[in-house]
Amino acid sequence: MPIKVLIPTPLRPYAGNQSIIEVNAQTVGEALTALVAQHPDLRRHLFSEDGKLSSFVNVYLNDEDIRYLSKDATPVKETDTIAIVPSVAGGR
């Protein structure tokens, strides 16, 4: 089913400068796979070399962190929105 993925500003240059991309998927993992298939340049910004989601990349299904759901296997509905948000941290 089609599902919307919100692309954060730093990743848009690797996603055809789009802020919202629709992909066909039944799970969050399928959605991310479809997203990277459409826009291969996104891969190095989302996944580490071993193919796992980078530690600084947060993926939310609506308002829930997928790490606290079923991770990649989290099922999606057509009304859901996936948001990708790189982490924001630092300090002196």
């Binding site: 954060p8 500003t9 730093p10 240059p13 600084f56 982490s87 924001v88 630092g90 300090g91 002196r92």
Partner: peptide
């Protein structure tokens, strides 16, 4: 700082 750069991921 070094930490600021290491933890920064929002290019642009």
């Amino acid at each position: 700082s070094v930490t600021d750069l290491a933890e920064a991921h929002w290019t642009g």
